[in-house]
Deep mutational scan, measured.
Amino acid sequence: AITFRFEGQEKAKKFYEKLMRQNLEATIHIHGDEVHVTVH
Rank of each mutant, 00 (worst) to 15 (best):
V37L: 04
V37M: 03
I30N: 05
V35R: 00
L19I: 08
E34Y: 13
Q22C: 13
G8Y: 08
H29Y: 13
K13R: 14
L19V: 07
L24G: 03
H36K: 05
K18T: 10
K11L: 13
A12G: 04
Q9G: 07
T27M: 05
H36I: 14
V35Y: 13
T27D: 07
H40A: 08
K18L: 14
I30C: 03
T3L: 09
G32W: 05
D33T: 12
V35A: 04
G8H: 13
F6Y: 02
K13M: 15
N23W: 08
A12S: 02
E7Q: 13
R21N: 06
R21T: 07
E17R: 10
V39W: 13
E25A: 14
R21L: 11
I30Q: 08
G8P: 02
H40P: 05
F15V: 02
F4L: 05
M20C: 05
R21M: 11
L19N: 00
F15T: 01
E17L: 12
K11C: 15
R21F: 07
H29M: 11
H29A: 11
T27C: 06
I28L: 10
E25C: 13
V35I: 11
H40S: 08
Q9R: 09
H36C: 08
A12R: 00
K13V: 12
V39D: 01
R5S: 07
V35P: 00
Y16H: 04
T27A: 05
Y16E: 00
I28G: 01
N23A: 06
F6H: 01
F6P: 01
I30S: 06
K13I: 14
G8R: 08
L19Y: 03
K14P: 03
F15Y: 04
I2K: 07
M20Y: 04
A12Q: 01
I30K: 06
G8L: 11
Q22N: 09
K18P: 00
R5A: 06
R5G: 04
A12I: 03
E25R: 15
R5M: 08
E7R: 14
L19F: 03
A12Y: 03
V37R: 00
T38M: 10
I2P: 03
H40D: 04
K18H: 12
F6K: 01
K14S: 09
E34A: 07
R5V: 15
G8D: 15
R21E: 09
Q22R: 11
N23I: 04
D33V: 09
I30L: 11
I28Q: 01
K13P: 00
A1V: 13
F6A: 01
H36V: 12
F4P: 00
E25P: 13
A12M: 03
E34M: 10
G32P: 04
E25Y: 15
I2S: 04
F15M: 03
T27Y: 13
F4Q: 02
V39T: 04
E17T: 06
M20S: 04
F15D: 00
M20L: 14
I2D: 02
A12E: 00
F4K: 02
K13F: 14
G32Y: 05
G32K: 06
A1W: 15
H36F: 15
I30E: 05
T3G: 02
E17N: 09
I2V: 10
A12K: 00
H31T: 08
E34T: 09
F6E: 01
E7T: 14
Q9K: 10
I2H: 06
H29L: 09
I2T: 06
G8M: 10
G32V: 04
Q9V: 15
F4R: 02
I2F: 11
R5T: 10
E34K: 07
L19S: 01
R5E: 03
R21Y: 06
T27Q: 06
T3M: 07
T27G: 03
T27L: 05
E7C: 15
T38F: 09
R5Q: 05
T27V: 07
E7Y: 14
H31W: 11
K14N: 08
H31I: 13
I28V: 06
G8F: 10
F4Y: 14
F15R: 01
Y16S: 02
F4V: 04
T38C: 04
N23R: 08
I2G: 03
T27F: 09
G8I: 11
K11I: 11
G32H: 05
V35D: 00
V39P: 06
E34W: 12
L24F: 12
A1R: 13
H36N: 04
Y16A: 05
R21H: 05
A26I: 11
L24I: 15
F4H: 03
K13C: 14
Y16T: 03
H29N: 07
L19G: 00
V37T: 00
F4E: 01
H36P: 00
T3A: 04
E7D: 14
K11V: 11
A1M: 12
K13E: 10
K14Y: 09
K11P: 12
D33L: 10
E34S: 08
A26V: 14
H29Q: 10
R21G: 06
H31K: 08
I30A: 07
T38V: 13
K18F: 15
H31R: 09
K18E: 12
I28S: 01
E25F: 15
K18Y: 15
Q9S: 10
A12P: 00
F6S: 01
I28K: 01
L24M: 10
V37G: 00
E10V: 07
Q9H: 13
L19A: 04
V35S: 02
T27R: 06
A1K: 12
E10A: 09
E17P: 01
L24Q: 05
A26F: 14
H31M: 12
F4W: 08
E7H: 13
K14F: 09
H40W: 15
V37K: 00
K13Y: 14
H29C: 10
